[in-house]
Computed example of a mutant assay.
Amino acid sequence: MSNTKLIIEERAANIGNFLVGRLLPFRQKRMVGPFIFIDHMGPAHLGAQDNLDVAMHPHIGLSTLTFLFEGAIMHRDSLGTAVEITPGAVNWMTAGKGVVHTERTPERLRHSEKTLHGLQIWVALPVEKEQCEPSFTHVEADEIPSWEDNGVQFKLIAGKAFGKQSPVPVYSPLYFIEVKSKTTQTVTIGQHLFGESALYILEGHISSDGHTYGAKQLLVAKDSTLCAFELAANTTVYIFGGEAFPETRFIEWNFVASDKSLIARAKEAWTNNSFPPVPNETERIPLPPPKRFGG
């Protein structure tokens, strides 16, 4: 019997002047472990006059994880952080009770051609941490645990697995792992996983239980402990998951919470301009209107 519970195709979503491939949330699967939102951003090839400019916007109740394959993003937030992220490094911002940030093309790249490609991920916080003080951590690429096993390259970007721990300061049991190979290899790693688990194919393809899956597909496992597949040559996949929360999480715009009243309060605070601003920034993304369904 196949261990694949659900196959999610990447779907286009618009963020400003970018089309991104949205993976989570999905109607049939709102979360995988604590992971509640995943966008595949790019690859976007930008001209000399085209830049990423995501103005001030707020978050509550989550941690954001930015991981780039190509390009660079300048992150600024209401804590006073100003950090450029480049490929292989991790930006981990915990919103807690509320944080505001911007994401822009760094000044050094704003007048030249460039490519931007990466993953934008939201990880929901445990109930007891939802209203914690906001914080920011940047982890350089060479600080991420990396190793090779039988011709397969691994990176533990966040969480715990394989008896290793990433320096990214997560708040619940989870893992986010890069697996890649230049040659065809069989990968059996279920004994290292736990909780809910999913596998995203960035490039190449994998085979499992007699089926072949290609790039831009997200496979949700029935049982993470049975995770085994054949990795085709020149394939890169990302495996993520962990312990699911007992409580439902609600998501509206950039807000995540176990209690809808926290989201209502955050919406009112943003409308009233009472979130802390990002230093030296003035442009704000307005609260979007409520979604209307039906006729």
Rank of each mutant, 00 (worst) to 15 (best):
V123N: 01
W122T: 00
L219N: 01
G159T: 04
Q131N: 14
Q153S: 14
E140H: 08
R110Y: 03
E178D: 11
G204C: 08
F162D: 05
N150A: 15
G204M: 11
T184C: 07
E107A: 15
G214S: 09
E133L: 13
H138I: 05
T186M: 13
H205P: 09
L202C: 05
P106F: 11
L226M: 12
G210I: 05
P167E: 03
E178W: 02
P106T: 14
F162R: 04
Y213N: 10
H117L: 07
Y171F: 14
W122F: 10
Q131K: 11
L219A: 12
L226A: 12
S208I: 14
L116W: 03
V220W: 01
Q217W: 09
C227N: 13
T225D: 06
A221R: 03
F194I: 05
S208D: 14
I177P: 02
F136W: 05
K182T: 13
L125T: 08
A228Q: 15
G210P: 11
S166R: 00
H101A: 03
G195E: 06
E178N: 13
E148H: 13
Q165T: 14
A215H: 07
G163Q: 05
R110P: 00
E140N: 14
L116S: 09
G118H: 09
Y200H: 10
T105P: 00
E113I: 04
H205D: 11
V170I: 13
H138W: 12
E203A: 12
V170Y: 00
T225I: 07
T188W: 11
Y171D: 04
L219Y: 10
Q165E: 15
V152C: 08
F194D: 04
V187A: 06
Q153N: 15
E113W: 07
V100H: 02
L199T: 15
P106K: 06
S181D: 06
T115C: 09
P145R: 04
F176D: 00
D149C: 13
W147V: 11
V152H: 05
